[in-house]
Design a protein around this nucleic acid. Structure first.
Lengths: 336, 336
DNA sequence: ATAAGTTATGCAAACGTTTGCATAAAATAT
DNA sequence: ATATTTTATGCAAACGTTTGCATAACTTAT
């Protein structure tokens, strides 16, 4: 393997000069610089990042932490995109991205401790679902910058985070339905234990109240069966809505089923808007209009926040909301 | 940060002794060993992996390569699970897993080159879809062990790979349908450009020929519309099957739709088995019986092969098939 | 032409490990 | 008790970088 010394010898200079050339120190004459660069190219030299890491006490590494056993940790289909959003910036900075599962059973110590002490990871990105005060304390004690993907339930002042603008998403969805002529809009799927669900409900309610409409709120879990049964109840109830906003896509599958079984048509009798732009929205009959979530951007922005913290440790904590947009599909209709 | 020297001083021994204790060299008395270990624990010491890496010329790192821009690279929903299969073993070996996108635009050199030369990654796992002879040559030239996830189309003798046993999967599916009393089984979705698709077809055909049944084969792409239109044609054709094996889950969504529109019932009139145990299979009405794919295992085994190559570079290349099993859901019925 | 200032380069130590070699201490044989 | 072998430990060099300090080589001012 070719080292800095080989380059130095080939260029007839000292290793210091080569090093300074690489890190483009100002005090280096353009002639030698040129000469050295030529040799670097010719010999196809890359500085050994472990040697660099050792002396600079840096790992040039960022860690994406997950907890596989935790269902909520990352929704499968999102993960890939999020990761690549992160990765894009990470590689631009010539770092590398390591992925670690918090739950991995390591004899020695906690994964985190290992990452920090042995691997010297320089920053951590993690889903809000695994964020707790113990973890935060540990990270802060070690001085490792971190960013939460997802708005944290508490600790909000002491954490940088990125999330989708859930509230504005459903707000837009509601207005969009009203614009189209839908008049009785229900929100289905509020789960008060989940912050994102509450935010989505808030957005809906905001728009409804603002427009002096009536709130129709159905709390339920997020399975397709929950959607099915609760929609059924709603259809048998006193006020039958002519549009439903679903807290997420899975629910909407059950909702559609219930509506179709009742002999009603989508989007004519009842319009549907759902959240999360997953594959499912396109596979359903009819395809589902959704609040489109740019998870790639979510990842990218989380990395951006993280590097701000890495490069300037006294950066203030901040929360960032990624805006959403409505993707029209068959479950809603222009002029009702 | 606490170093080996701190431990040495605290234990009243030299750094060498501490080092030897850590790497449990035999020539170390049990008294000192004990003493050293006590201090290691007390001081909460972890050896700096960059210093280790430098001297041992190892990175303790394995890379999972993907190509985001390549649709086929990894199917989104699989990725997460595969990765964790890999990760489990990687962490057991006290390595870490880095994820790199082959397409990342790096000014300097190719990502791979950078990973190998600067980062000294010790092994690479990559999807067969991005495997080409140029890449293989490059990896071999650098002496980096690698494993393909997915059976490679060519180069099979010079590559270690893991794949799902696609052929046996559909074979089992076919027999299972025959056992249940289905008699006219069609295979829908053969895409001759894709190896896994061909394998799945082979399995079906094997079982059909073996049982002296008639082959009903419909080639088509893998969208839900492809499934819909081709099933429709089939329903209007001379031989209407009483069961369909779909090459993948997405197709089956369209197939179900076509059958239902024709006024036929699933699973009574027509039974359906599909491939890939994705969320979709459970969201559809009816839920879809599938050939269940253990992607976690796929990842785990790929890592296992990789470590065999890392630990013993003259290991022979080998291909490994992960067996599947049928997961019964509503789209098939016991006794037709 | 000489002094002073500036610019470009090299030397050597440092980062935190591992490991071959030397040697001190302990164990065994005489 | 002494000689010999075995076992346990330490010293110092090495891995491939970076960087403070020293100095050589130019500039510019006098």
């Amino acid at each position: 393997m070719v080292t800095i010394k080989d380059v130095a010898k080939a260029a007839g200079v000292s290793s210091s000069t080569v090093s300074r050339t690489i890190n483009n120190s100002p005090s280096i004459s353009s002639k030698t610089k040129e000469k050295v660069i030529k040799e670097i190219k010719r010999l196809n030299f890359s500085p050994n990042s472990m040697a660099k890491g050792l002396i600079n006490n840096k790992s040039y590494t960022v860690t994406l932490l997950v907890d596989v056993d935790d269902e909520k940790s990352f929704q499968n289909p999102f993960f890939y995109e999020i990761m690549h959003g992160i990765e894009r910036l990470v590689y631009k900075k010539e770092f590398s991205l390591i992925v670690a599962n918090l739950n991995t059973t390591m004899k020695k110590q906690s994964v985190l401790e290992w990452l920090v002490k042995a691997k010297r990871t320089e920053g951590v990105i993690l889903p809000s679902s695994i964020l707790n005060s113990k973890l935060v304390d540990e990270l802060k004690k070690d001085g490792v910058p971190f960013v939460s993907i997802g708005e944290p339930t508490n600790l909000k002042e002491s954490v940088s985070w990125v999330d989708i603008d859930n509230k504005k998403g459903t707000e837009m969805a509601t207005y969009s339905l009203l614009d189209k002529g839908y008049e009785n809009i229900a929100f289905l799927g509020l789960d008060k234990t989940k912050l994102f669900s509450k935010r989505r409900y808030d957005g809906y309610m905001n728009a409804i109240l603002e427009s002096k409409q009536e709130v129709i709120n159905v709390e339920c879990g997020n399975s397709k069966d929950d959607g099915y049964h609760n929609m059924k109840k709603l259809l048998n109830g006193p006020v039958i809505p002519d549009a439903v906003i679903c807290a997420d896509n899975i629910i909407s599958i059950g909702v559609i089923r219930a509506i179709q079984e009742a002999g009603l048509s989508i989007p004519e009798d009842i319009g549907i808007i759902s959240f999360d732009n997953q594959q499912i929205a396109e596979l359903s009959y009819p395809t589902i209009t959704t609040v489109n979530v740019d998870v790639y951007e979510l990842g990218y922005q989380s990395a951006k926040l993280l590097f701000e913290l890495i490069e300037n440790p006294q950066t203030r904590y901040q929360g960032l909301l990624i805006s959403t947009k409505i993707e029209e599909r068959e479950s809603t209709i222009k002029n009702k």
